[in-house]
Design a protein around this nucleic acid. Structure first.
Length: 846
DNA sequence: GCGGACTGCTTACCT
DNA sequence: ACAGGTAAGCAGTCCGCG
């Protein structure tokens, strides 16, 4: 381990100076403008305190140039912009597969490198100039946030999982035992990081209320003109309090029904001071939207009221809000992340409000307000504010603090502090990981423009107009009911393709003439035979670890629940990363954007899919459907299935697995649209309108009742009875509509505005029409809001729910919608909706 | 001036 | 601000109709 030099801000260094080894967890890194040094925030897990360790190695911000040291050092403009030194350095240029000599341009201030209009990177062509300094520092020192460290004589040593543990795992997991050479080494490194001890971090969730003179205006955090009237705290140590600014002489300090302490203040300045004390005493502070509201407001209000800077723990940067010592987690930012929403939380919440997210994940909502904030009594205000903090706390701690563990693991994988993990999308995480790996191996990180210039071209045509390249295949479903269907799918198809075909930005279309015959199917691309791709190696190892160890362990019922839940968290985190590892290379804002890599990955996926389809047919297996990486086989013959699986392993070097077995599946002619009941009595519905979340409850209820009927079906004969019950059901619903036996609310469609209402210029969809009617009565709407509307007999056919009455409803439109919803299933059963509900063709015409 | 055929926009879904 | 592929409904337009 390299020697690093650190000095702690506190004097408690004695703790480990006198022989006792002390473990600290790296929480975060930052740059201190006053001292011009990087510093680390280290958690002492026993005292639950944060220690600040200042860098004493003299590390400085820098970037690289391909110009010579002479040329650069004679340039006065560079010095004017803050360059203080130059040094020659050799790096390996992966893109051109050769060593390059670069000049390192060193500065005292990160802003001299980048971030200002007159920074060095705006003046000359620079490499590695876009890395935030606090991350650059971590990469250079090989430091990984979320990992434990010991400190001895100013040297930090990472405490990874021990070799014995790692070797045990590698020998127990078949996937990992097969790894050799470089791959085995990579797997070993990952396991030693992922299996390391993790800390329990003390935290407090906070929420503030500000008294705005005008109720329609949200108070501005930058101005912080209005008084803070309430600050709520819910701590992991049991601390529950609401600080309230007294407005009238009513109550005294007390403990309430909800179990929080109510503390009243005459003076706002004193209240903030005490709040700052509380905040400073926790290593981690959580908020909902604290980056953009609560923390900047508190910070600026503190300044405004004349609280000394050294008492104010909040630091505001361009990225968000953080704390001098502790870290700040903004759950709003985190839950906004699409990957987190879809892969970590299975799309359980749809809207990014505290109300919607906590309802979906912990089954609790906010306190309902029936009057403006300014009219609440002190007690009501306290209760409202407290619940917001309590919900943030719940989200952080539910399911054995799953979220915190997820953040720790994502920090380790991405090599980013938890705070940065919350504020970046999955492309930022992968970028950070790959940057770290470049630095570790002495590789030059390519500039986005040179990468694009050399690897920008694609060779296939997308099915969808406007897309950059061709994607996955979907097999035509065989319409009808199929009993005894086994679903096979490729385990992590795209990451496996990356691994097995050696795909990486430097290996696809590499510079070597002799590799050009190593063609990727269906594309004009070739892949390198001489050098192992970095991305292939890293993603490949993560894939093997997930498939070979964490995935099976997360479902191992013989393990203790706490152990299993840890495996589940790691498994999920890996899934999020792996799922995106292909897509980011086709994402034009990704810093290592490389369309041929994404295109090649998809092409290999299609190749594997087609070949397997062909092989299944050769084996005499009927394939009734397939999508991207899955095949629906009309057989239960274990021998045949086994044969196909081993063929895939031997010929394609890919793992085919039995995903599930359906007692029966129902297909119409539509792709991505089916219903199935597994042998474990689980009803799967994919893509059908009946499961889409914007449809009215009225239709959804009928659909769910239909599913209950299907669940009971064991044999083909049972379908007859199911059809009879279905007919009764549909008739009942039909006449409910006809006779007006419905609640208006149950007929509401709920559709999300994807942009501000005024941005819809090309067409005006129904939910936008409804939204405009709401705006006409003074309701403010914006992107992300869900509009509830009903279909009416008005000229434009729509009204927002709150402006509609039952007599406005266009019943025929709802019958049409029911018809099309159920036809997706009835088609396959050879049933006609209108005949079933007993409507003559004439009547349905009227 | 009206209505059917068509295209494009939009949302929600699948892998 | 990971990707492409599919379904469905509606908005808007074109075209034919003496």
């Amino acid at each position: 381990m390299a020697q690093y030099s650190y000095r702690a801000q506190q004097t408690s260094l004695e703790d480990w100076a006198n022989g006792g080894e002390k473990t600290l967890y790296l929480l975060s890194s930052a740059y201190d403008g006053h001292t011009g040094k990087a510093y680390l925030k280290m958690l002492d897990p026993e005292k639950n305190e944060v220690l600040i360790l200042y860098d004493e190695s003299g590390h400085k911000p820098y970037c690289y140039s391909k110009l010579s040291i002479e040329e650069l050092s004679n340039n006065q403009e560079l010095k004017a912009r803050g360059a203080v030194g130059f040094a020659e350095e050799k790096k390996y240029d992966l893109l051109h597969d050769k060593e390059v000599t670069l000049t390192k341009i060193i500065a005292n201030d990160p802003l001299a490198i980048g971030g200002r209009s007159n920074s060095i990177r705006e003046f000359i062509m620079a490499w590695e100039a876009d890395i935030p300094y606090h991350l650059c520092y971590l990469y250079d020192k090989g430091l990984i946030p979320g990992m434990p460290y010991t400190i001895t004589d100013g040297r930090l040593d990472m405490v990874t999982a021990n070799d014995w543990t790692v070797n045990q795992i590698m020998s127990m997991a078949k996937q990992l035992a097969e790894a050799k050479g470089e791959d085995a080494e990579e797997v070993r490194r990952w396991l030693s990081i992922l299996e390391a001890q993790y800390p329990k971090i003390k935290h407090v969730s906070i929420d503030i209320e500000v008294l705005a003179p005008v109720t329609t205006r949200v108070p501005s955090p930058s101005k912080a003109e209005d008084p803070v009237v309430a600050i709520s705290f819910v701590g992991s140590d049991g601390f529950k309090a609401v600080f309230l600014l007294k407005r009238e002489k009513t109550t005294t300090n007390t403990t309430t029904d909800e179990g929080f302490e109510l503390k009243l203040f005459d003076d706002e300045k004193n209240m903030l001071r005490e709040a700052f004390n509380v905040i400073s005493s926790y290593p981690m502070v959580a908020t909902f939207n604290g980056d953009d509201f609560d923390l900047p407001y508190l910070k600026n209000r503190g300044d405004k009221l004349g609280i000394p800077k050294e008492e104010n723990p909040i630091i505001i940067s361009r990225e968000g809000a953080t704390l001098r010592k502790g870290i700040h987690v903004d759950l709003y930012r985190l839950f906004l992340n699409k990957s987190v929403q879809v892969y970590a939380f299975d799309n359980k919440y749809r809207e990014n409000t505290l109300e919607a997210i906590s309802r979906a994940l912990v089954g609790k909502g906010k306190v309902e307000l029936n009057k403006p904030m300014s009219e609440l009594s002190l007690e009501e205000l306290a209760r409202y504010s407290f619940w917001d903090a309590a919900l943030v706390h719940e989200l952080l701690t539910f399911n054995d603090s799953l979220l915190i563990k997820l953040l720790i693991i994502l920090a380790r994988i991405s090599r980013m502090p938890i705070e940065d993990v919350c504020r970046h999308g999955v492309s930022g995480w992968i970028k950070s990981l790959l940057y770290y790996e470049h630095r570790r191996r002495g590789y030059l990180i390519p500039r986005q423009d040179e990468l694009l210039q050399e690897k920008g071209a694609t060779t296939t045509k997308a099915v969808i107009e406007g897309k950059k390249y061709r994607g996955a295949l979907v097999a035509e479903p065989m319409p009808g009911v199929h009993f005894g269907v086994t679903v096979l799918d490729f385990a992590s198809l795209y990451p496996s393709a990356l691994k097995e075909w050696n795909l990486s930005y430097e290996t696809v279309r590499c510079v070597h003439e002799e590799c050009k015959d190593n063609i990727i199917p269906e594309t004009g691309h070739w892949v390198c035979k001489k050098r192992r791709g970095l991305q292939s190696l890293v993603i490949g190892a993560l894939r093997d670890i997930r498939i070979g160890w964490y995935k099976p362990k997360s479902g191992d019922k013989t393990l203790q629940p706490e152990v299993r839940s840890w495996y589940e968290v790691v498994q999920r985190a890996l899934k999020v990363l792996l799922n995106a590892s292909y897509g980011v290379f086709g994402f034009s804002n990704f810093q290592l954007y490389c369309p041929p890599v994404a295109e090649s990955t998809a092409a290999i996926g299609r190749y594997a899919f087609k070949m397997t389809l062909k092989k299944a047919k050769e084996l005499g297996i009927q394939v009734v459907y397939g999508d991207t990486d899955s095949l629906f086989l009309k057989t239960n013959n274990p021998k045949l299935i086994e044969e196909l699986i081993s063929w895939a392993k031997n010929t394609l070097r890919l793992d085919l697995e039995v995903d599930k077995v359906y007692r029966y599946v129902v297909f119409s002619t539509r792709k991505k649209n089916y219903l199935g009941v597994t042998t474990k009595d689980v009803v799967d519905v994919k893509g059908l309108t009946g499961k889409k979340r914007h449809i009215p409850t009225f239709i959804k209820e009928a659909f769910d009742k239909m599913l209950e009927e299907f669940k009971k079906v064991q044999t083909e004969e049972d379908f007859e009875r199911a059809k009879q019950n279905l007919q009764n059901l549909l008739r009942t619903w039909y006449y409910k509509l006809k006779n007006g036996q419905f609640e208006l609310d149950d007929l509401a469609f709920r559709v999300m505005l994807s942009k501000m209402p005024e941005k819809y210029t090309k067409t005006t969809p129904q939910h936008v029409k409804a939204a405009r009617k709401l705006e006409a009565i003074g309701i403010q709407l914006s992107a992300g809001d869900v509009i509830s509307f009903v279909k009416t007999k008005d000229k434009d056919g729509v009204r927002p729910l709150q402006l509609a009455r039952p007599e406005h409803i266009d019943v025929e439109k709802y019958i049409d919608y029911m018809r099309s919803t159920f036809e997706q299933v009835l088609d396959a059963l050879g049933i006609d909706f209108d005949k079933m509900v007993g409507v003559s063709s004439l009547e349905s015409f009227m």
